Amino acid sequence: MYTRVTFGGYESKADADEAMSLLKESLLPKHRAVAGAKDMYALRTGETSSMVVAIYDSQESAERANSLRGESIERMRRYQTDHPRIIDGASHL
């Protein structure tokens, strides 16, 4: 198993609301369709912050999702205060 956690910050609550809607309606379904994607969660961690947790069956599967990650970052950029912070690694579940 392999997990990627992405942290995002937004200028305002309204920006965070719009970003979470975009994640729910468009971006998460695309990422969940990647071969080897196990699950994905978008969490609101504060009024102007969020965290996305993506779980894959392997690092190779997570790397296949990288092409979508670039598109997602570009689509989210208008809402975010800066580039998202991404942490990933092998899961020991």
Rank of each mutant, 00 (worst) to 15 (best):
V5W: 02
S50K: 05
A65G: 09
S49Y: 01
E60L: 10
S58G: 01
A54R: 06
S26F: 12
A14Q: 14
A54W: 01
S50R: 04
A33G: 09
E60N: 08
R77K: 14
L22M: 10
I55K: 14
S91I: 01
G36D: 07
N66S: 15
D57G: 10
R75K: 15
H31V: 11
Y10M: 10
D39I: 08
Q80C: 09
L93P: 14
K38N: 10
V53T: 05
S50N: 15
S12E: 06
S58Y: 02
Y79W: 07
K30W: 07
R78S: 09
A90S: 05
D82K: 13
R75I: 02
S50Y: 01
T81G: 11
H31R: 11
S21C: 09
L27Q: 09
M76H: 07
H31Q: 14
P84A: 04
T48A: 02
M20C: 00
A42R: 05
M76W: 09
S21M: 11
E47C: 03
D17A: 09
I86N: 03
Q80I: 02
I73Y: 07
A54P: 03
S72R: 00
E71Q: 15
D39P: 01
Y10Q: 04
A37L: 05
Y56K: 00
L28M: 14
N66Y: 08
R32D: 04
G70C: 06
A14L: 12
R4T: 02
R44F: 06
M51E: 01
D57Y: 05
S61N: 05
R75G: 01
Y56V: 05
R32P: 00
E74G: 08
S49K: 12
A65H: 04
A90G: 00
M1P: 10
V53N: 00
A37Y: 00
E25A: 13
E25H: 11
R75H: 13
T48P: 00
F7Q: 08
E25F: 04
S91A: 12
L28T: 08
R77V: 00
I87S: 07
A33S: 15
T81M: 06
R32M: 13
A90N: 07
E47T: 12
L27C: 06
P29W: 03
D57F: 04
E47Q: 11
V5Y: 09
L23G: 10
E63M: 11
G89D: 05
S61G: 10
P29V: 01
N66R: 13
S67F: 11
D88V: 04
A54G: 08
D82C: 06
A42N: 04
V52D: 06
I86R: 05
P84N: 00
R32H: 03
V52T: 10
T6M: 13
L68C: 04
Y79T: 08
L68R: 04
E63I: 10
